[in-house]
Design a protein around this nucleic acid. Structure first.
Length: 907
RNA sequence: GGGCGCAUAGCUCAGGGGUAGAGCACUGUAUUGACAUUGCAGGGGUCGGAAGUUCAAAUCUUCCUGUGCCCA
């Protein structure tokens, strides 16, 4: 096959992907091989590929392709997450566009419609992952609401319940009044927004006064509207200002509710007046204060409904005019907050805030302006309302114990390890996990209630009925489970658990998990808990956490900022291989990646470079190699490249062991471009000018073909498309590159040969540099003399004269004294070449060049001399360091001598 | 307020007790056969600041400054 001069990724990517998928390349049958398993963080079924996915999946694909080539029974599990809230929102939004809504349908009909949507529009991302080249096992694509997955979810729930690790509780939850569901702590994002601090007067009852004679207590609040459900006023137990009134009562304005003054350490004497209103039903801190003050959760007053509109409290004391108002201003319409403040003000219960203008005039405001840390729902985007409801909870504290231990003792390694502290910090302070959601789309909670509200938990209704007794009317819990409850089972439920399948036996525990740090708590930690609970072991021994891909200016990418980079656009422009290589090359541990399109472009250029190198090989009859092991080589250049392949292979393996994707990518990049293309191909060009059937050409074709094949293999995990294309372009192959073997080049390479090539490279570089500085045409051929030649020099000049002529452009090279006259000196290793300059160049320029080198060597020599004359250094430094300093000093001293001599000769 | 990072060439980043590297950008130069999505050569950094440990600190320790993220 002949290749075009430029590489066009688009023309090959789809073809190869299809081929791999159709021929089972992603999951070759290797029943006897050692398993290697990773599971893909299941993207939301509503999702589309963003740059973060591109990073996450590129890294995983590099690992799985690498392990597959190393002969493992490699399995990369893939699938999508049903994404409860996100998916329900998508379908509801589509309904809204048709002036339709969810509640127009029965639950069953609505869920059917979501399934319809999933079948028709869901899973866009799976196509996009294919474009990135991800070699996942699509033959077993998973979905978190597959039948067998549901089975795993139900079993887990029932087992946890029976073990007392799932329970129902009435307590405050994070309520999203827009989505009208509870959410977990992790789904709440705190943002600081501008708000106010209102100061209120609560009149003391029964003629009680404070020590200063005041007949009211001042309380300050950021949420004045909740005073409709206040149940106490708290002061600090050591606060002398209030000690006399603890146990007394105040009568609330507006409602007239009589509430106690309690002592509680939650009240901060330094803050405001030191007294705080307590609303146990609408504030997490107040809930705890309320409990300490003796209120049962069931008795705590609730003044808001599920939409966060004011409703009547159980004591019936909220005035009619407030009922139905939204908690605060919305769509320009005043809410309960505004109404309560207006009423307090009118009745004289509001203490105004006095502010001074720039001119020093005093101005009254209703509230003191403040920045308030406010909780928002990450999906709904509205302020979260702490709300008292019955929900299902997982006892996360108990489940977290073993994972904490495992990370501590190294059973689970977290890479990079800086994340361990963050992990412990969260796990050791973990709160009960609220797992019930008031949605329709998701795993229905397997609990049934009788008329008295007793719960019966079983995998199916029959089981619950059996527990409740015949004839007892049961109604299933209306709620569904948090999406993360099911994805926590991903490492084993995808393999068929709870059935005892061969896949589970062979591929659990998995070998590695790669995920972004943003889901460390959401997903990774919960997999650890559920893996341990269900399987009795950690889900994987190693967790690799990568960072975020940021915009070029370092900002977080977001749709609202409009700085989102579409990975598919980059693939269109530069090819999937270039984008992948960029991701790998930029992925150093523990740092976010800044988008740098120039760099993606650079890796596209790298692909073109490899493409053209292959074209060169083809034009010289260099084709597919026939052996895995390195061919026997006699020519120095061939031995040299074999040695270099061994080195780079070892480097890549080390980098992969360390999960240093950047180091691995850079190693293969430098080898391919700077070693193979820049030197090896140049070194062997003269060989092909000679007899094509003679030993040198035959051997070189063989070695070059082998070396190129090793490049294709080692580069394949990073750039799968171009390497597969070139693999086949190079000749008939017994198998595709995707299932080829990783190099194992255990060849003997002579030091003489590699030294010789290194010497030629040194000579060539120095000649080119000297010419450049002296303004001699790069192509000019110069005669050179070597008065005293090292063994290396004389041998190399004899055997590699063609390379020296072609690369260093020295011809002829005479072993012997140079004729008198102006000349320049060029070194190669310890050898000094004399190159006559008469008529070629201005002597002054050569002198300037030598003086520059002389100054550099003098500086080095002086510094080394100083160090060596320091007795402390010679006595106390490591012997190697002293030896090296001595050798360096000797070298630079000799250089100084040589250069001074050369300068003297030039006059 | 607590925790975790980061600060190295113009930019984006590696490195790491023995005197500093890559890619891009920049400068000069090269063009009849692999490649201008190229080759060759080159300029450019007192490694954020201060103190300490050490024969030796960009590297280790402490503090400071700036900056980012997470949690409350």
């Amino acid at each position: 096959m002949t290749l075009d001069t430029t590489f066009d990724p688009a023309s090959i990517e789809a073809r190869w992907y299809k081929h791999w998928e159709e021929t089972g390349g992603f999951r070759p049958e290797r029943p006897d091989a050692e398993p290697f398993t990773i599971v893909n963080p299941p993207p939301n079924v509503t999702g589309s590929l963003h740059i973060g996915h591109a990073l996450d999946n590129t890294l995983q694909d590099i690992v799985i392709r690498y392990e597959r080539m190393r002969g493992k029974d490699a399995l990369w599990v893939v699938g999508t997450d049903h994404a409860g809230i996100a998916t329900q929102m998508v379908v509801e939004r589509q309904m809204e566009q048709r002036q339709d809504k969810r509640t127009n349908y029965s639950r069953e009909d609505f869920v059917d419609k979501v399934w319809d949507w999933k079948r028709e529009s869901g899973g866009t991302i799976t196509t996009q992952l294919r474009r990135l080249g991800c070699s996942m096992d699509w033959s077993r694509e998973q979905f978190t609401m597959d039948e067998h997955f549901t089975k795993a979810v139900l079993k887990t729930f029932v087992d946890l319940y029976n073990d007392g690790l799932i329970y129902r509780d009435k307590r405050l939850v994070n309520w999203d009044p827009k989505l009208k569901t509870a959410i977990s702590d992790l789904e709440v994002e705190t943002q600081t927004i501008a708000g106010g601090f209102w100061h209120l007067k609560y009149p003391l009852e029964d003629g009680v006064t404070l020590s200063d004679g005041r007949n009211y207590i001042e309380v300050a609040t950021t949420r004045p509207e909740t005073m409709l459900a206040d149940m106490a006023v708290a002061v600090h137990p050591n606060d002398d200002r209030y000690s006399s009134v603890v146990g007394k009562h105040v009568v609330l304005p507006i409602t007239g509710r009589r509430i106690p003054i309690v002592a509680d350490e939650h009240a901060d004497p330094e803050l405001g007046s030191g007294a705080v209103k307590v609303t146990p039903g609408h504030d997490f801190n107040d809930f705890e204060v309320g409990k300490r003050a003796g209120f049962a959760a069931g008795d705590m007053l609730n003044m808001l409904d599920g939409d966060a509109n004011v409703c009547q409290t159980s004591d019936g004391m909220v005035p009619e005019e407030f009922l139905g108002l939204h908690r605060f201003k919305r769509d320009g319409k005043d809410g309960a907050r505004e109404a309560v403040v207006a009423r307090l003000k009118a009745d004289g219960y509001l203490i105004p805030h006095i502010a001074k203008t720039k001119k020093g005039e005093e101005v009254e405001h209703d509230a003191e302006p403040r920045q308030i840390a406010t909780p928002f729902g990450d999906r709904g985007g509205v302020v979260i309302e702490p709300w008292l409801t019955d929900q299902w909870y997982v006892d996360a504290e108990k489940l977290a114990a073993k994972p904490i231990e495992q990370v501590k003792d190294g059973t689970i390694e977290i890479v990079p390890k800086t994340w361990k502290k963050t992990f412990f910090n969260w796990m050791e302070n973990i709160q009960p996990w609220c797992i019930s959601r008031q949605l329709w789309w998701g795993h229905r909670i397997p609990a049934w209630f009788d008329a008295e509200g007793n719960a019966y938990v079983a995998e199916d209704e029959a089981g619950a009925q059996a527990q409740a007794g015949k004839g007892v009317a049961l109604r299933q819990d209306q709620d569904v489970l948090d999406t993360w409850f099911s994805s926590a089972l991903w490492p084993f439920a995808t393999l068929g658990w709870p059935d005892d399948t061969n896949l589970v036996k062979k591929h659990f525990p998995n070998n590695l998990l790669i995920s972004g740090f943003d889901i460390l708590f959401f997903w990774d930690a919960r997999m650890m808990m559920m893996g341990q609970y269900n399987m009795g072991t950690a889900p994987w021994p190693k967790l690799y956490l990568h960072g975020l891909v940021r915009a070029a200016d370092g900002a977080k990418m977001s749709k609202s900022k409009g700085n989102v980079v579409d990975p598919l656009g980059l693939i269109d422009q530069y090819g999937a291989d270039a984008l992948r290589f960029f991701m790998a090359a930029m992925e150093s541990q523990g740092r976010d990646i800044k988008m740098d399109e120039k760099r993606v472009e650079g890796y596209r250029n790298f692909a073109t470079k490899l493409w053209n190198a292959t074209r060169f090989c083809q034009s010289n009859g260099i084709g597919a190699s026939s052996t895995l092991k390195a061919p026997t080589a006699r020519l120095a250049a061939n031995q040299w490249i074999i040695g270099e392949v061994q080195q780079v292979c070892a480097e890549i393996e080390q980098a992969m062991t360390d999960l240093r994707f950047d180091a691995a990518a850079n190693a293969i990049y430098q080898f391919t471009w700077s070693k193979f293309c820049d030197w090896y191909l140049e070194l062997i060009k003269p060989v092909f000018a000679g007899d094509p059937d003679a030993m040198p050409a035959v051997e070189t074709r063989e070695v070059a073909g082998w070396a190129l094949d090793q490049i294709l293999v080692m580069l394949h995990p990073f750039m799968p498309f171009i390497t597969e294309e070139l693999w086949h372009a190079q000749g008939e192959r017994k198998y595709d590159l995707i299932v080829a073997s990783w190099p194992n080049p255990r060849a003997e390479v002579s030091k003489e040969a590699t030294d010789a090539i290194d010497w030629v490279i040194d000579l060539t570089t120095n000649v080119r540099s000297a010419k450049n500085e002296l303004g001699i045409a790069p192509g000019a051929k110069l005669a050179a003399f070597l008065p005293t030649a090292s063994d290396l020099a004389s041998g190399t000049i004899e055997r590699s004269s063609a390379a020296i002529e072609r690369l260093a452009r020295l011809t002829p090279v005479t072993l012997g004294e140079a004729p008198d006259g102006p000349a320049m000196q060029v070194t190669a290793g310890s050898d000094v070449f004399i190159i006559p300059l008469e008529g070629i160049i201005d002597i002054g320029e050569e002198k300037a060049r030598l003086e520059k080198s002389l100054a550099a060597s003098q500086k080095e020599a002086k510094s080394l001399e100083g160090r060596l004359s320091n007795a402390n250094f010679v006595e106390r430094a490591k012997p190697e360091a002293v030896e090296k300093a001595k050798a360096d000093f000797a070298h630079h001293s000799a250089e100084v001598e040589r250069l001074e001599g050369a300068l003297k000769r030039l006059g």
